[in-house]
């Protein structure tokens, strides 16, 4: 099985490679369109800022390639947000694969931004979460979020409910860090690799 981790200078990719390594899976970090197109599975991790990430994707021609992919695809954190239409973060146009707009958490007393730490998952509705229980903990760190919609396959609350995970066809994505969410995150990665 060939697994491509997309390299667009998007933050903590090494953590994702280590997580796959701990699961006994070899993956290739690549920005090469041909290697990405022929991979069996694709991971699209990311951290950082939406507009500069999109700039990097455009510079590499990946903004055109990614929407055409048909194999199982997993976006993580910023890699989830980039699948939407538009982000409030520096007014960035995104890849447009899913119909959501990314917005910033409103200022709410007692709820600091970024939303950082372990929070519970609810409304799990995907084979991606096989073996998980409602209220299992995963690790989040983000200031922007995708609202809940028909594409939502898991929710979390801070304090408003938002999309903890989304799906459209072969495109799965999670707002939290699977690679940093202990045994729960490992299980989600394993579930994805079996798709």
């Amino acid at each position: 099985m060939e697994i491509a981790v997309i390299d667009y200078k998007g933050g903590n990719v090494q953590s994702v490679l280590f997580a796959l390594d701990r699961l006994g899976v070899r993956a290739t970090l690549t920005a090469d369109p041909e290697a990405i197109r022929r991979a069996d599975k694709i991971l699209f991790p990311g951290e950082g800022e939406a507009a500069s990430a999109m700039q990097e994707l455009r510079a590499q021609g990946l903004d055109q390639l990614l929407p055409t992919l048909t194999q199982p695809f997993l976006g993580i954190c910023l890699g989830m947000q980039l699948l939407g239409q538009h982000s409030e973060e520096n007014n960035a146009d995104l890849l447009g694969i899913l119909p959501f707009d990314v917005v910033r958490f409103p200022t709410t007393p007692g709820f600091k931004v970024p939303h950082m730490g372990w929070n519970t998952l609810q409304q799990l509705r995907s084979p991606l979460f096989a073996g998980l229980r409602e209220e299992d903990y995963v690790y989040f760190v983000h200031s922007y979020y995708a609202p809940v919609g028909e594409y939502t396959i898991a929710e979390a609350a801070y304090p408003i409910s938002f999309s903890a995970a989304v799906q459209h066809k072969n495109f799965y994505a999670v707002q939290f860090h699977t690679e940093k969410s202990g045994p729960v995150g490992n299980r989600i990665l394993e579930n994805f690799l079996k798709m």
């Binding site: 701990r22 690790y139 760190v141 690679e179 940093k180 969410s181 202990g182 045994p183």
Partner: peptide, 9 residues
Amino acid sequence: VARELDIPF
């Protein structure tokens, strides 16, 4: 250290 860790670092 990072290789061992499945929590944030």
